[in-house]
């Protein structure tokens, strides 16, 4: 199920504006890869280009290659809708569908893929996904209540449950804890550890301790200079990044001597 991602010479544009330039990296299957870097350096933009969510914004486009398990995502014959079904995404702010119950939220993606889902199958899938997101015990008695009634941390885990219900190959997380309190954050981090055995996970975070705690590999993004495009400065195993990084800029950023 889990797959690796190979990125080569990826340039990402908003219209004529080059936002991220020349990214090369290999994201390993069944591992957690974290992206760190200052705001506006393009790490979220890069993450969104991995499941073709980037092009949802008018004028946005990419050059270069993203290959998942031998299949180039930006090949003209590839349907972006199909890509997004295989590569799930969790956003910065929890975004359950406001008019849907917890139950329907979990099934939302499944119902897109298969028109009819049998009741017994649906029940089983909802339980499995909510258990997978460590949310089952908290919501099992109120599955028919709106998803918006949950706390922020629970909503975010509901969104993770919704994403894993369609059994994607890769799970992208765009600062999934930035709107959450420390306890909810820790719940999500535990979850990421568990999900790692089944999924390839890529996470963008502003919290360096978080990157150090959850990830196997870390990529550091930075702007070349003010007004210049962002680029990947260093990509290495997390342990190395946080103890002996190759690049001085990485060390400066991680130790807080940035600028």
């Amino acid at each position: 199920m889990a797959k690796s991602i190979d990125v080569s010479d990826l340039n990402i544009y908003y219209g004529d504006f080059l936002a991220v330039e020349g990214v090369n990296m290999t994201v390993k299957a069944r591992s957690v890869t974290a992206f760190i870097g200052p705001s506006g350096c393009g790490k979220s933009t890069f993450l969104r280009s991995l499941n073709r969510m980037h092009e949802v914004i008018p004028g946005a486009r990419v050059e270069g290659k993203v290959v998942v398990d031998g299949q180039s995502l930006y090949d003209p014959s590839v349907d972006p809708v199909a890509v997004r079904r295989q590569i799930g995404m969790v956003f910065q702010r929890p975004n359950p569908f406001p008019t849907m119950s917890i139950y329907d939220n979990v099934l939302a993606g499944k119902r897109l893929n298969a028109k009819k889902v049998k009741k017994s199958e649906a029940d089983a899938l909802v339980e499995k996904s909510l258990r997978g997101a460590n949310l089952w015990s908290e919501v099992k008695d109120r599955l028919d209540k709106p998803g918006m009634g949950l706390s922020g941390g629970q909503q975010q885990r509901l969104c993770i449950a919704r994403a894993i219900a369609v059994e994607p190959e890769v799970l992208l997380m765009d600062e999934p804890c930035s709107a959450l309190d420390p306890i909810s954050t820790s719940a999500i981090e535990d979850l990421i550890h568990e999900l790692k055995s089944d999924y390839t996970i890529v996470i963008v975070t502003h919290n360096m301790q978080q990157a150090a705690r959850v990830s196997d590999d870390t990529g550091f993004f930075n702007l070349k200079a003010t007004g210049e495009p962002g680029h990947l400065v260093e990509f290495n195993p997390t342990k190395k990044m946080f103890t002996a990084p190759d690049n001085d800029a990485t060390e400066a950023y991680i130790s807080g001597r940035f600028g």
Partner: peptide
């Protein structure tokens, strides 16, 4: 809200499905 549109799109919704969701 963009947030909800993207929630649907990220699940692999087509444009019409996104509108419905």
């Amino acid at each position: 809200p963009r947030l909800h549109e993207e929630a649907a799109l990220a699940l692999g919704a087509t444009r019409w499905e996104m509108i419905r969701y």
